[in-house]
Write a protein that binds this DNA or RNA. Structure first.
Lengths: 110, 110
DNA sequence: ACCGTAACCTTGCGTAGCAAGACTTGCAAT
DNA sequence: ATTGCAAGTCTTGCTACGCAAGGTTACGGT
């Protein structure tokens, strides 16, 4: 309950870059990303991911590609773009310094 | 520009607990908190802090006290409550595991 | 024909940070 | 006295994002 609320707000702003980090290893499709992120505790449902992927597509951070070669419904594979890679680097810097500040505060409060 | 947008979203959900952590050392008043948090890069302006303090007050996480003994305008000092201390502990756990996941992803993407 | 399931996407909602500025109070200089 | 300034508190309007729930498309098994 209360911990879910905490986690929900923590995820804001982190998720987008976790997707980029995952894609930096190679392309993945939607549900594959969703399952991975759910396992890691970074999303609560697909409802967070698909709107996010749409935004990232519009902003040119990822490049989608339909693949209907397999069986079942066609999958949409996403690859990271150069812009996405740049954003990922920028995020890593901001994250590192913010995480350091938060850790310092938490350390000090014990 | 872009880094500010990144930081803005990262701050969501972190700020409330950074305030609790700061108050766990002893009570502080509004602008004192604001200056400290600004220095640490955790808020961009007081506009984030005062509404947050109002929410935390309503939720019983902090206990305010007017102090007009000194010089200048009266200050409103905030102290952390038992509920606030509990929330801070809960946050520390959620934060630690989420930060570990994010760090793992960033490590892996290099 | 029907159902389950994988995969994709949409809608409506609540929440939280932010910029900008309003309001109040005390003090100091003219 | 009056003006100006700075410290301090709070409000308004905006935007962005995660989420739950549900809807859609395509295939395979019975």
């Amino acid at each position: 309950m209360t911990e879910e609320r905490i986690a929900t707000n923590l995820r804001k702003g982190v998720l987008e870059y976790c997707v980029l980090a995952l894609l930096s290893h190679g392309e993945k499709y939607g549900l594959e990303l969703a399952d991975d992120l759910t396992t890691r505790g970074l999303i609560a449902s697909e409802g967070s991911l698909y709107p996010l992927l749409a935004r990232m597509r519009e902003n040119g951070l990822v490049e989608p590609r339909w693949d209907a070669s397999g069986t079942g419904r066609p999958r949409r594979y996403y690859a990271i773009t150069d812009d996405g890679t740049d954003q990922l680097k920028a995020f890593a810097q901001v994250w590192t310094s913010l995480a350091a500040e938060v850790n310092a505060l938490l350390e000090g409060s014990r």
